[in-house]
Design a protein around this nucleic acid. Structure first.
Lengths: 208, 208
DNA sequence: AAAAGTATTGAACAGTTGTTCAATGTCGGT
DNA sequence: ACCGACATTGAACAACTGTTCAATACTTTT
């Protein structure tokens, strides 16, 4: 048998296994379904090991929260390989992609939002990630429409995010696909709308 | 002193006091903050009384869920006193009203959504209420724009609800007021948009 | 081979949880 | 004054919670 340094690509890295077990339980049964014992069982490790890698239960949840936040940020990460307009359009359509609209991911997001609402500590992490997401989206808008001011881009990003959050949430309630498609189109309309008249298009769009 | 039949309008009806205590705790601390003991303390009654009025903890939560659902339905309740167009416009603007955009209510809504996601029982109640809400909104649209077919009204209602859910959720994350106002305007645009060309406007809009 | 380091285990502890229940209080009706 | 019906209490119970810790297994270094 393998010496465990490389164990058939399955048993490796118990720490991330524990984290993923926690996220799985959180998305399926909510926070009350995430007990240290349940996490250990789901990950196939002993109880003590969970507290070995994560001091607290809150530390464990924080790790899960940060992981989902990272994943969200990837949605608006710039990709120099394609033109700015296509980059933006792809980012806007990604939120309705099959990999994102899974119950697992959406449910996880929802439970983390609920946790952030109940706990000041989580709330700060969440708010910071939310801000970075809007910033990333605004940067994509700015690249695709350089004639807009930076504040104008952030305003559009905020408007888009409202609809995106609505899509995520409503998907969980089993809404028809048509409404999602309409919403996607609406975010594109906002992003690509022509610049307003009284706009000083001096191309000085910069993040402060 | 009052004979408790009418106790100075304060101490009356311990059952609803318990329910409101539960909703308060749920909105402030999430489901893990709602223990039978905490509810009893918050309501100022003994522990046993909570289980006297509500057999289970799940029965208690179900009652809270139904109460919020009722409250939501009121938002799209028809009001024969005003013209259909004004009725619809008022309903659309109500969701950004000061009484609705309180942290307490939004947080409560969020935690109930999270619970519904984790528990099949709550999920059904929630889905049914969601459906009734869309129906109510579609009815308002139908009254304001009789030339639309019923399916067309429901489609618009679905589109609107996506944005409304987004507003509710995003308000919790502390979004700027401007985005909310834009979103409200967007829901009005959807509701009052002119009927599409190939529409058989025979006025046969009926709920099946 | 011995030592030192890290990983992993499960039992033990003190608290908290939801639920049950006998005891007590508070009524209006007779 | 007694009654039956409902309201209210808090103690008791078993199950579960997060956390700690000494004991063991496994690797790597010496």
């Amino acid at each position: 048998m393998g010496t465990s340094a490389v164990n058939s690509g399955e048993q490796i890295d118990r720490q991330t296994r524990i984290l993923e077990a926690a996220m799985d339980l959180l998305s399926r049964h909510g926070i009350s379904g995430v007990s240290m014992r349940a996490v250990a069982r789901e990950a196939g490790v002993a109880l003590g090991l969970v507290n070995y890698y994560y001091d607290d239960k809150t530390t464990l949840i924080r790790a899960a929260l940060r992981r989902v936040d990272e994943h969200d940020l990837l949605l608006v990460a710039p990709d120099p390989a394609v033109a700015p307009e296509e980059q933006l359009r792809k980012a806007l359509r990604r939120v309705a992609g099959a990999d994102l609209l899974t119950t697992r991911y959406l449910s996880l997001r929802l439970h983390l939002w609920a946790l952030a609402q109940a706990d000041e500590d989580y709330a700060q992490i969440n708010a910071a990630a939310f801000d970075r997401y809007i910033d990333g989206l605004a940067a994509l808008v700015s690249a695709a429409k350089p004639e807009l001011s930076w504040d104008g881009c952030r305003e559009r990003a905020s408007d888009i995010v409202v609809i995106q959050n609505g899509m995520w949430l409503t998907s969980l309630l089993g809404v028809d696909k048509a409404a999602i498609q309409h919403s996607i189109a609406r975010t594109e309309d906002i992003a690509f709308a022509p610049a307003p008249a009284g706009n000083s298009g001096d191309g000085s769009a910069k993040k402060p």
